[in-house]
């Protein structure tokens, strides 16, 4: 490239695209009923990853298989608790898009803080933005002709 400024402009435009296009993207709302049977035991949810579309009505039936577990949904600030033998359900409309952690909300033993799952509503835009930005960053770092100028070391005065 003859004019570095042009390359930087193109790169800048690409960054803006990667950041803003996913935000502008409006997914189709189908308002489907989605239900999941989630088993909770041994510090894990099975299945651990729930994928729904925005606007879906989600029902999670929580089945504990060892001790009392809970399920808290980040972002939605909802939670449900189930004893073994007493399945509990949580129903909500997935009106926020993104990836939300499911966290056990009842201390269930040593690894309790790490009992995690995921609720993915719509596409995971953030990870694609992240990947896109990382590749743009790669181009950017290669575009720099001289990696930022090394300041002259003052060895003595």
């Amino acid at each position: 490239m003859k004019h570095p400024a042009v390359s930087w402009l193109i790169l800048g435009a690409a960054v803006l695209l990667v950041v803003f296009v996913p935000i502008l993207h409006k997914p189709e709302i189908l308002n489907k009923e989605r239900s999941f049977r989630v088993e909770a035991g041994d510090f894990a949810y099975t299945p651990a990853v729930l994928k729904v579309n925005p606007g879906d009505r989600v029902t999670i039936e929580l089945i504990s298989t060892d001790v009392v577990h809970g399920l808290y949904v980040d972002g939605y600030d909802l939670s449900v608790t189930a004893d073994p033998g007493q399945p509990a359900t949580l129903t909500f409309v997935a009106d926020q898009s993104g990836v939300f952690r499911l966290r056990c909300s009842v201390a269930c033993g040593a690894l309790h803080p790490f009992m995690l799952g995921k609720l993915q509503v719509g596409r995971n835009m953030l990870i694609w933005q992240g990947i896109g930005m990382t590749f743009l960053a790669l181009i950017g770092t290669l575009l720099i002709r001289k990696p930022f100028p090394v300041p002259e070391k003052q060895t003595s005065s």
Binding site: I63, S64, T65, D83, P84, G85, Q86, P87
Partner: peptide, 17 residues
């Protein structure tokens, strides 16, 4: 509360334990 964990919610003997 007391039975379903073994005997199953439906009574079929298929509880989680």
């Amino acid at each position: 509360q007391n039975c379903a964990a073994c005997h199953g919610v439906s009574g079929a003997g298929d509880g989680v334990f």
